[in-house]
Amino acid sequence: MKEFLQQSSYLAVAVSLVSYGIGSWLKKKFKTGLLNPLLVSIVCTILFLFGTGISYDTYNEGAKFLTWLLTPATVSLAIPLYEQWELLKNNAKAVMAGITAGVITSLLTVLLLSMALGLTHEEYVTLLPKSITTAIGMGVSEELGGYVTITVAVIVITGVIGNILGEFICKLFRIKEPISKGLALGTASHAIGTAKAMEIGEIEGAMSSLSIAVAGILTVLFATIFAGLL
């Protein structure tokens, strides 16, 4: 049986989808943001791997096809963006100012907290690109001499936490404007936050998609300056 589980081509994707289904069902049933489908599915899948003794590498042999779809899915984010083009054009200044403020705040928060918590320069630059999409963040971390594996882990954690807490944070700071909600989610927690923004609404999703690209590129530009500060 174990041999079958190890060799199956479809098991990993099936387990991932079933656990996502469990997460969605729990969220519907208990109506609480804490039971976030993405978080529940990650936890369920990890438990399944522990329970069956399947290694991550074996799981990823099958699950990599889900990851493979990420590039075409991210490309497709241009579609909602195009559908909201008028809205985007009419609010271009606010949109750019919002994303820029977020990027600088992200770098500044990491700088101040790294100083306060006594992190080394390498640890600091590892965390600098934490709010942006994985592929850009990896490149920034590598270029600045950070630990790329940690950067990737922190980027994923940032996305998942943003996905879980996003709606709560919008309420907390009274961010009500759909454009602003989307920008906030995308700038703070990249594509994983955008997945949440898409669930909230079309405008939120489009603005969040835009933020992934703009925040990513702005971070590449500003991170070099910030890297020299600690």
Binding site: S16, S19, L38, L39, S41, L69
Partner: peptide, 13 residues
């Protein structure tokens, strides 16, 4: 799209 992030999340282990 959300399910595409599951492998990366599981990879945190």
């Amino acid at each position: 799209m959300p399910v595409m992030f599951i492998p990366a999340g599981v990879g945190l282990v």
